[in-house]
Nucleic acid binder design. Structure first.
Lengths: 229, 229
DNA sequence: TAGATTGTTAATCGATTAACAATC
DNA sequence: TAGATTGTTAATCGATTAACAATC
């Protein structure tokens, strides 16, 4: 049971790919065939050379003065992410958070198919929440055998997360998308992706704090200038 | 209107701080006074020297053979993130996602106080959702004047996000936590933190794909060895 | 041809890791 | 004193950025 899985190569690029994909799909829908690195850069808020480097990684070559072929870019991004085929998933914990993930159309559009949800509250067992059947957690093994499940989405209370995780690992799950605040320990061959709102909150807080500090420094500077002037 | 705000310095460290904080608070609750870098490293799944570098950035010094003072670490992390005081926020869009954020106790514990929520559906206006009053969006300006709001949390449909964002900027908001899939354009002095589940999904997908590929390569290797043997 | 845009090679920058001296 | 752990300095690594040649 290790806490850390193998490091992902090219992580910054991978993190940008969904955004590229979204922009490219918009262009494709408008009937565009080619896109320049500078166009993508402007849309993404990054610089063009970085876009070209990302595209180089996707092994797509462009044409000077024309740009890069949009359909091929889309195909290569999907290939890079393993998104050519849709992925079947189970979701655990049909509370507020679980519900909001079941309702998320964006993830569906990216090929995530939540084929069943689980809860241990008998009141939540039902034939369908956002079109997904909800089962008692006791039926996990039975239903795992019936589906080819690529990942489990965890939205249960943090205190139940490790136990559930162990059960999932025992059932042979390879990917866990962890929306709980629990730090899960898993074997090396299981991949965990933790989704922690505290991180985004921390980054935003830190930037706001820095900005306010720099503004008040500037104000002091302004006052000084005013006094000097 | 620029899409990109100024780059955050020391972003990788900032992203680790909430996790440190959580571990340190657990230790403090158990009555511990000191912690070693190797203990923190093991809990976080990183190496000890990286922990020491992060702590160096927090300007906390330790004692050889004893470790680092836990209370001071906590204080310095909170200071670094601007978390000494709680932050008042408005939340926009009381759908599934908005509800799940209103229900999130972890964020409350980090000092985020959502003092009001807004929606344009009359059916959702109520005196309290998870203890937070829900107002019609028309009352935004009036209520902005009454509170010292540090950030806005956006959970509205993506197609309404830019309009709302413009209105918030006009009201003087400085920080926007964007849970919609919209790419928002704001002036340079407004900070946006986008929370995009597609990124986590992409990283997990990519790692699963890589792992499967390396495993099947290994199997081929095994077969070859078997054939050769 | 002229000019825009890609592709390549090198430089820079920042984060991580290593080595080891200092210190309790 | 011996040994564990911090603190410092340097090395490495990977991502970003710059410069410019190649190409349509």
């Amino acid at each position: 049971m290790k806490k850390q899985n193998i490091k992902m190569d090219k992580l910054p690029t991978v993190r940008r790919l969904p955004d590229y994909l979204f922009i490219l799909q918009e262009l494709a829908a408008k009937g565009e065939a080619y896109v320049s690195s500078s166009y993508l850069a402007e849309k993404m808020g990054i610089i063009a050379i970085l876009v070209r480097k990302d595209i180089e990684l996707l092994r797509v070559t462009g044409t000077p003065r024309v740009g890069y072929p949009i359909e091929l870019l889309i195909k290569r991004i999907e290939n890079f992410l393993g998104w050519e085929a849709s992925m079947d998933a189970f979701l655990f914990g049909v509370g507020q958070l679980g519900n909001s993930i079941l309702a998320n159309r964006d993830l569906m559009n990216l090929g995530l198919r939540i084929v069943a949800a689980f809860d241990n509250d008998p009141g939540k067992i039902s034939s369908s929440v956002h079109g997904v059947p909800v089962f008692d957690i006791s039926r996990l093994k039975e239903l795992m055998a019936k589906h080819d499940i690529g990942m489990a989405i965890l939205c249960v209370p943090a205190e139940n997360a490790q136990d559930l995780c162990d059960e999932l690992v025992a059932c042979g799950i390879r990917g866990i998308w962890n929306f709980t605040s629990a730090r899960l320990a898993v074997p090396e061959n299981v991949i965990i992706q933790k989704e922690d709102p505290a991180i985004g909150y921390a980054v935003l807080s830190a930037r706001l704090t820095r900005m306010q500090a720099s503004e008040s420094r500037q104000n002091i500077g302004d006052n000084k200038r005013a006094l000097n002037g």
